[in-house]
Structure formats: C-alpha cells, structure tokens
Design a protein around this nucleic acid. Structure first.
Lengths: 236, 236
DNA sequence: CCCTTCTATGAATCGTGCT
DNA sequence: CAGCACGATTCATAGAAGG
C-alpha cells in the first residue's frame, strides 16, 4: 500500500478512503483545552500555549477553539469515520492532556471503540513548577480497539509509562511529540501494518511509522505543516 | 489536634466531625472496578483481583461491589461530607485506576471541589504483561482543592509522576500503597497540617502523615485493618 | 557478606465452554 | 443466546534460597 500525505480537513478526506484498509489509528488531535474560560480558549493556539510574553515559535494550527460540547461532537464525528477505515481488532491511540482525558475516553467509546487503557507519557521535566502543587509533567494516550483484540496479533508487549523528555530540535510543531516516543507507540500496530493519522501536524507519527517498518497515510490541513512533514518524510 | 483512628463506616463517622478542621483529604477509596460482569463485580476483592486459584494473602475489604452509577453517587456523598470538614483552599487527593478515572474526576467536581490535575503512580515495569498491549502499570491520583488554592501555601513543588515499585514487606492490604509513595503525596498538605483519610485500610496514609510531621484522622470499617493500622501507628 | 539462581507474583484479560 | 466460571497467558522484579 502506498504511503500518502493528504492536504485538507480530516472530516472531508476520511470519507474518500477505502473501508477496512488500516491496521491502526494513532493521532494527536487538537485538545481544545488551554485556557480556563471559554473566551481564553478562543484565542489562537500561539497565544494560548505560550508561556510568559515569548513570541510564538510555531505557526498556528486549526481546530483548537471549540468548547467542550462541540469538541466532543467533533471528536465522535471523525472517530466514527476512522472506525469505518480500520480493520476489525485494530488498535486506536489518542493523545490528550489531563483536562480532556475524560472527554477523550467518552469520545472513543461514543464512536463505538472499546476503551482498553491509558498509557502515560512522562515528560520527566517539570513544566512550570508551582509551589504547593503537583507538577504537570505528563500527557496521556487513551487507547482501545475496534471490537475485540485477539491476543495472537503480531505486536510486542508495550510500556504503560513512557519516559521521554521533550527536545527542542525534535519538536517542529507547537504540540509536537518526540520521535522516540512515537516509535514506541506505533508498535501497537500489527507488524508491517498500515497506520492512519488524520492530524499529522509535523508528521512525527508518520516518520515513526516509517522508521518502524509500517506503511502510513496522514492528513493535515495547514499548508505549513504539510510542507514540514513532507520534507521530513522525504529525508528518511 | 489529637490523632485518631476511628472504626466504622465513613458515611456515618464523617458527619460527627467538626467542620473546617482539616488541611487535606488524602485517600484511596474502593475502586469498584474489577470484573467484566455484574456477577463478577460482586465477588469479594480477594477473588476479583487475584489471579489463578492462589490463596488470598490479605483480608477482604468492604465497599467494592457497586455498579458505576451507584459508585458515583456514593463517591459524591462522602466527598460532600469531606468538603464540610476541610478548610478553604485545602487540597484533595483521590486514588483511582484507569477504568474509574473519568468517574473520579466527575465525583470530585460534583461534590463541589475544583479539579486541578492528575498525578501518576508509575509502578515501574513488571506488571502483568500482555502481548500486543500496553502494560497496565500505572494508577492515578486525581487531585484538586476546596475552592481556590493560594500559591503562598507552605508546601513544596511536588512530582507529577512518582516511580515507586510495590514491595511485599510494605504492602499490608490487598490494594496497599508503598509508604514512600504516600510520603510524597501527603506533602501537598500545608506544613504541620491535619490530614483526613476516610478509607484508611492498613493505615499507610496515616503512617506517611505521621512521618512527615502532620497530624491525622482516619476511618476504617474492617476490624482486621483497624488492628493492623493501629499496630503500625503505635510502632512509630 | 556477596553473588547467582530460582521462584513467586501482580487493584487482569481473553476466549472457551457450560448453564 | 446471554451470562458466567474457569484456565491460560505474559515477563520484570522482588525476594528467597543456595553457594
């Protein structure tokens, strides 16, 4: 199966793809979680996620200004499209932060998937330490499957907590994940299978999939990141 | 303030305590999460959580056979009682597993607390591997506060992920937590404050509180564990 | 006392087969 | 057919046993 990076909105592109043609869904959708108030959430991500008065390092990305209710509906919409594209028993991994974790497990299950657990990404460094509080040093991968997941799948035992620091040189998107982290995660896919990432961003999931011997298809609607991801994938 | 270990049901005991007299709520309630079917959930914990036909190492504990709906209602009931007992701004820490995490964040917020984050207990590797799956090696601490939480509280910066293996000699309850883990957690309480644990079990939270210089009050309804906890605390 | 070898265990889960 | 009981499975680590 040919690898492809498609430019456009996942909700438009997914319906054009062939049913039952993917072995795993692994993606990092917009969290829509920055900001305590609805108003603060509607600022573009480059203002929302930047500390202090620093200028934005990364281009804005789309799809991050919904309120909780709309965000859930939107998650269920694209997840349901993905359910059609996945083979029976295929695993699903969705990144989320603590604030959106319950919404993410709801969305996964509303879309008809079986929720099977949570894997923790431990960033190891304290992000914004605050006296008298716990550090906010983890993000979460909500994972599950389309229907039952036979034990004879060709996939290894995978870690439930992945300790991986964020390295600037390896972060090409505002919410980009370390390549080493993604290389661990994609291994939930059956050996040599085909990985779907409808929110490819700077393409780290696709790069990891390629490095681990999978084929892949990604969608990304922001021109800038389609170019970034394209270059990274071409350089492999 | 005198330290006390009370014997009885939390829902009965909590209303008898004085309002605004605690600086932190730190507890590990029954999760009611084992078992795929209603029937399986009603088995005692020693059968539910132990593999194979091995004989039970620890005595059973009560309150683990509710379904999701009743479990939520019950959580909100005792949490609301605790809200009355806590001072304004006091932190709350609730243990939970991946399956009950969304329910726990709901319960915390339904009872009127502000949800502030999740802290991860990483049990480290060695926990029941399964091919083709992520290891289930973490439990979670949902934490928050009664109302706003001033930054000038006398409490240190605390870790967001705590790596701590389970040691047999340090585990006196089927679901007992390591003392080292609890010593880290209780430090969310303001220096020298008073800690409440309505589900004391073998008393690890109270032991940790004592070791870290806090005063404490615990409730436990199972005779056996009241005795175990009493002995541990007396031995300090 | 230190090192090596061995064994037991885990807040499970899946699939089968019986009721 | 739905629901439930039961056996099989996975491996890093702790802790015991032995040299």
């Amino acid at each position: 199966m040919k690898n492809q990076l498609l430019k456009g909105d996942a909700l438009t592109l997914l319906p054009t793809l062939e049913a039952c043609s993917f072995d795993a869904l692994i993606t990092d959708p917009p969290y829509a979680s920055g900001g305590l108030t609805a108003g603060a959430r509607q600022k573009p991500p480059s203002e929302k996620y930047v500390q202090g008065g620093k200028s934005a390092l990364h281009a804005d990305f789309a799809g991050d200004e919904r309120d909780q209710r709309s965000h859930l509906r939107w998650m269920v919409m694209w997840l349901s499209e993905c359910a059609r594209l996945l083979k029976e028993g295929a695993p699903v991994c969705l990144f989320t932060d603590w604030r959106q974790l319950p919404l993410t497990t709801d969305a996964l299950q509303c879309a008809g998937f079986t929720w099977r657990g949570i894997t923790v990404w431990d960033k190891t460094e304290g992000v914004r330490p605050q006296l008298g509080r716990f550090r906010n040093q983890a993000e979460y991968v909500v994972w599950g499957s389309k229907g039952s997941m036979p034990l004879q799948r060709r996939a290894p035992v995978l870690p439930g907590v992945i300790r991986e620091p964020v390295r600037k040189a390896d972060k090409l998107h505002m919410t980009g994940k370390p390549t080493a982290l993604m290389r661990q995660l994609v291994r939930i896919c059956e050996e040599g299978g085909r990985v779907l990432d409808p929110f490819a961003g700077s393409g780290t999931t696709l790069v990891a999939a390629q490095l681990e011997g999978y084929s892949w298809l990604g969608c990304e609607m922001t021109d800038h990141y389609v170019e970034v991801a394209g270059q990274r994938l071409a350089a492999l």
